[in-house]
């Protein structure tokens, strides 16, 4: 094991100096966000904002070009019978599907995001990870969602993880880099904060909670700790970093609470798709149903919303 955690010429901070996190305090604060009552026009505004922040995702072994094309169709036409809806921020697919998605989305300004670096486990050589990244970008990916090497991180080999992120960032070129911490495998909020700090210093444009393949995926406490890390990083460097909770956010109400948390933690500057995303596959329809309910006053059935 290499000596790690020490400041290096590469810009890796001493992660042992990262502010500790108290889990109970975090849970209490998060519970407060969940007592916020979001009604009427602020609810409608929030629901539309959520739609615009969605990375509509399909990451299945059974994905086919047909499935991806359907997803892209949904991304563009969320619910055409409801006027004035935004489109989602991006579709998120495996590297082999980037070309299909790029083509299906045509010239609308929905981004293509691709997972890379041996998603979801990250258990491959750096060479292959970089190659995969370059391929996805070459195929037309605007955003790369990489996974960190959790084994190396938990082993304390922070230098390895740092260098890997930095290398992937370089391979991204102009594409935005989202770094997935896979917080469900990190075990404690202290390590979530450390991994966030590491990723941001290594060049992440976004930090992201989860692959969606490990439980628990995104949770509010984990996201809150990452938002706090983003805030401190902003104070120290002046650089804004984006946040993407992914996996497990399927209800509109929960997504609204994430927005409350975002607003009260990072303020309004972050409340755009440029700085906040939801990685989700079924969230959009629940949000649409809530919007329809707000418009009509009548509770909705899933049968009336397309499942793509």
């Amino acid at each position: 094991m290499s000596v790690t955690g020490l400041p290096s010429a590469s810009g890796l901070p001493d992660l042992r100096q990262v502010t500790p996190v108290d889990e109970v305090g975090v849970n209490e604060r998060v519970a407060r966000f969940q007592t916020r009552s979001i009604k009427k026009e602020s609810k409608i505004e929030a629901l539309k904002m959520i739609l615009s922040m969605i990375d509509l995702t399909t990451l299945e072994g059974q994905d086919t070009p047909g499935k991806v094309r359907q997803l892209c169709q949904k991304a563009i036409h969320l619910h055409d019978s409801m006027p004035g809806l935004p489109h989602v921020a991006a579709v998120c697919v495996y590297p082999t599907m980037v070309g299909v998605a790029r083509k299906a989305l045509g010239d609308c300004d929905i981004n293509v995001a691709s997972v890379a670096t041996a998603f979801p486990s990250g258990m491959s050589s750096r060479k292959i990870k970089l190659e995969e990244t370059r391929t996805a970008v070459a195929e037309g990916a605007d955003e790369i969602d990489m996974v960190i090497s959790r084994g190396a991180f938990l082993q304390g080999d922070y230098g390895f993880v740092f260098d890997e992120i930095a290398a992937v960032k370089e391979a991204c070129g102009d594409a935005h880099l989202k770094v997935i911490l896979e917080t469900g495998e990190l075990g404690t909020l202290d390590l979530v904060r450390r991994a966030s700090v590491l990723a941001m210093h290594a060049g992440a444009d976004f930090i992201k909670t989860s692959t969606g393949k490990i439980q628990p995926a995104a949770t509010m406490p984990v996201t809150f700790v990452m938002l706090k890390a983003i805030k401190s990083f902003y104070f120290e460097t002046g650089r804004m970093i984006g946040m993407k909770p992914a996996g497990g956010i399927s209800g509109a109400k929960l997504a609204v609470h994430y927005l409350v948390m975002l607003r009260e933690t990072l303020g309004n500057a972050w409340m755009t798709p440029e700085w906040f995303r939801f990685g989700a596959s079924s969230l959009a329809n629940d949000v649409l149903m809530q919007l329809q309910k707000q418009a009509t006053g009548v509770y909705q059935s899933a049968d009336y919303f397309s499942k793509d």
Binding site: R36, L266, N268, A269
Partner: peptide, 11 residues
């Protein structure tokens, strides 16, 4: 950070 403008909570 700015907390005043933008999205707010209705009564």
């Amino acid at each position: 950070l700015a907390f005043n403008d933008g999205w707010h909570y209705a009564p």
